[in-house]
């Protein structure tokens, strides 16, 4: 299977969604929004693989 190239994804988030992300940072143990999104992606992928 060919390797997937790294890429940058642009999310559009409103002020309410950003507020929730910011409140989630300490609960998730990460320090910035992009890091939180990557954590969500990795954990979601793990959950998907476990099914």
């Amino acid at each position: 299977m060919p390797e997937i190239a790294p890429r940058t994804v642009t999310l559009r988030l409103n002020q309410q969604q950003l507020e929730l992300l910011d409140r989630t940072l300490p609960r998730a143990g990460v320090t910035d929004r992009a890091e939180l999104v990557r954590l969500a992606l990795r954990e979601a992928a793990e959950q998907e693989a476990a099914r």
Partner: peptide, 21 residues
């Protein structure tokens, strides 16, 4: 309601995860 953009750099492995999900 105001939207902002958030740039998220994904590694190749993470990009593959996104493609699966």
């Amino acid at each position: 309601i105001r939207e902002e953009t958030l740039e998220v750099a994904l590694s190749g492995e993470e990009a593959a995860m996104l493609d699966r999900l």
